[in-house]
Design a protein around this nucleic acid. Sequence first.
DNA 1: CTGAAAGCGCTTACAG
DNA 2: CTGAAAGCGCTTACAG
Lengths: 338, 338
Amino acid sequence: MKSTIRDVARMANVSISTVSRVLNNPDLVAKDKREKILEAIEQLNYTPNALARGLIHKRTQTLGVIIPDISNLFYAEVIRGMEDSAHESGNNLIICNTVNDQARRLASVKVLSEKQIDGIVITSEPIYPDSYELFRQLNIPIVLAATHSLEYEIPSVRVNDEQAAYDATEYLIRKGHKRIGMISGSTLDPISGLPRIQGFMRALRTHGLEAAPEIRIEYANYHFEESYEAMKKLYAKFPELTAVFASSDERALGAISYLHENRIQVPEQVSVIGFDNTRMAGMSYPKLTTVAQPLYQMGFQAVRKLDQLINGKQLDELRTYMSHWIEERHSVRDININ
Amino acid sequence: MKSTIRDVARMANVSISTVSRVLNNPDLVAKDKREKILEAIEQLNYTPNALARGLIHKRTQTLGVIIPDISNLFYAEVIRGMEDSAHESGNNLIICNTVNDQARRLASVKVLSEKQIDGIVITSEPIYPDSYELFRQLNIPIVLAATHSLEYEIPSVRVNDEQAAYDATEYLIRKGHKRIGMISGSTLDPISGLPRIQGFMRALRTHGLEAAPEIRIEYANYHFEESYEAMKKLYAKFPELTAVFASSDERALGAISYLHENRIQVPEQVSVIGFDNTRMAGMSYPKLTTVAQPLYQMGFQAVRKLDQLINGKQLDELRTYMSHWIEERHSVRDININ
DNA sequence: CTGAAAGCGCTTACAG
DNA sequence: CTGAAAGCGCTTACAG
């Protein structure tokens, strides 16, 4: 059996109040008693029960994290950042994988709330009215990571997807490409879909190219296989293309796989730029040039922000946009050169 | 403020005992009261406080998971399996990333214990005496995933690494390879190191080939970059090799990267087989033939086993060895054929 | 400096 | 069927 504060008190011949004090405010306790108590604690291997503490303090030092699909490599670095940040602020993370299911998502939030976690970071999901209603009801601090909400006043940490997509496209244009295609998430997807499409098209227009989304864009969910198929279709309807902007690394690898299998050289014949800079990007062949999101930092900052929110600190800004950059590797060719 | 059982009782004009009963044993309560209480619960958006419950039941329905490096893609599928299993048995998972640091590992276990989690699954780590001592002291159910302990009686779920390495090597031999090299983890690593080396050498010997580890084996930690270097060294000292067994997918990709960059065709000139079957294996070029571990199932079963342990059920077996298989893709060439 | 008491939000015998 | 009481393991005014 685990020993309790009562056992310690008995062994040290003091009241439980005094034991509690040496734990929380040792200066208030006379030296001799303090030492005897410390010794008893040691002997009994006593550790305070965090449930009892939580009940009193209304704080559990535990945070919830909602993730749509934890097997997506995108989250590996994000979670690592969250973990480090949590560790730094003395918190633990309960991670809930919602399998992209709104019902399971709401259920998870409810359970987390029952467990009295101090706050939740929600990743990658758009915030629907029923979610927001639940958050309000539960009155629980929320931070969004890799997503945001313009309708609601919820703190968030993400990259400016529209601009990042613009930059990716412009990068290709600077490298001399004009016949650029895109493999994108659905237009209904407010994160890796719509804004990146908008950025893509804005860059084309800005540089005097026709956007022509019907022929330039092909859609795929975030899986490799579907992106492979999308590349196939894209190539079929737009065979003159010299470059592809894939709106995630996994999509880029799916595209590259199709190209390889059809003996189309990357980047000699077709250049590919990805998005995310997951760890895979550095392991593929050719190594993937990609729009880097600061994945670790996004996770780190999201938890940091949540911790500030919980502690009633003034947030520097409601919606934080972290900076992205182009991580140049070997999958894009500069056409100007030859 | 969150409403409590007291608020519900007041609104429904009953005692808190009765409210508690409709929550835990509704049949014991008269229908009219029950309905009134349910209504009050609805109105107040009442949800029971899991801390208070946990304090009484000595159960939190929360499990701890210790992971050495969560950014390692190996864990993506494992955690997904754990999550699904936990969800099935009504548990949540607190995930602790220990950054491969024994001090942080022990600290994590202590915090988890203070939070009264019901059990812990530990992944990939060898069990040192000080760990075991702590587990004993804390008297907390433990299950090992992707590792095991022969010294201690701790339940575990893993693959038979020695046999899996044997099979990988034999697979290469069957494909006509004799000059086979290996990129391995350290001999000190009891998981991805020693047993896989032993399996590798046993296969060579069984098939009448000299093991000659000094020239056949090069070492690398689990990172891509180091494996790239290892491949370079291996190739330098053993240039006649026609195949390499890399003891993880990431090591395999590092090796392939080196080969690509030096215009050595994979698999035409050198075949590569990996280990793990992480999601990357299907996304590389060429797609990686690899020894598949049932990652999702390992995670799922580990949590399942832990749940059984917690509920005092008889375990089917202390040490579960899950079956592996060779996932044939395109990185190994059959030399016999031409 | 220290102990007794009240209380955090629940559950569960015990009486009636 | 229902309520009062004790108790889970703590913390924190309050008195002394």
